[in-house]
Design a binder for these strands. Sequence first.
DNA 1: AGCTAGACCCGCACGC
DNA 2: TGCGTGCGGGTCTAGC
Length: 276
Amino acid sequence: MPELPEVETVVRDLAAAGLAGCRICSVAALWPKTLQPPHGIGWQAVEGCRIEAVSRRGKYIVLELSGGLQLLIHLRMSGRLGIAPHAAADEPYLRVRLLLEDGRELRFYDPRKFGRWQLVSGAESPLLNLGPEPLTPAFTAAALRRALRGRKGALKPLLLNQSGVAGLGNIYVDEALWAAGLHPLRPADSLKDAEINELRKAIRKVLRRAIGAGGTSLGSGRTNFYGLEGRPGRNLPRLKAYGRKGLPCERCGGILQRTVVAQRGTHFCPECQTIP
DNA sequence: AGCTAGACCCGCACGC
DNA sequence: TGCGTGCGGGTCTAGC
């Protein structure tokens, strides 16, 4: 499931493929719902634009276009990008083709059809609702404390909602909570300053480690995560909690449990992630 | 406003 | 082996 480290991996792959600097001929949707209707303009507005830069914000891939528009790509559950020549045959689950003037095209595959492309100008951008980037200096202990303050709800759903921290999903929330020794149901505003700082460090650690491994791929199916060249991530063996139900905790030897929190599978150690 | 639940989707794992 | 069933998960929306 693409979260920050997987999206970062794809963005680095896109940069290495030389996507920045390419000029767009046209966009074609094989599954029209993937292309969200832009406000006041049509998708043909991308025609003739140059891709000025490729970056990431939270889980969004951001293509900065000449003329000031941004093309946002969200992979959601099963989205995947590839680059192919115009002439290459369609593969299964191909949903969108972005044709480039150099004879290549950016291809979007998405078996489960959750992924979305958006064409936005700054003012109505969904990026405005995102919390700080966890791997930048903006993600201070004070910023995390502000995000948690006054929140009566549980830690895990808050960390998932993107407004306090951008880019975490189900896997890395479980990993960060494990690394910080915090229970997923711990009331968010009950954390002491030292615990907030541990959580901040844990979030940064698990994300950095996963980026270093090219992201997490859970299996080998079509809906799994793959980089631009179809390469799976190598972070699975580094996970300490997610998907490890019944295995011993590497920190204390307790048996890891799986429960459901906020309608999501949640993995934690009942021995060393407790609610005081 | 904050929080929860449902909708969107369908491959895949699992059970018989 | 083949079929049927239900799970999983990010984000938006609806409803309390």
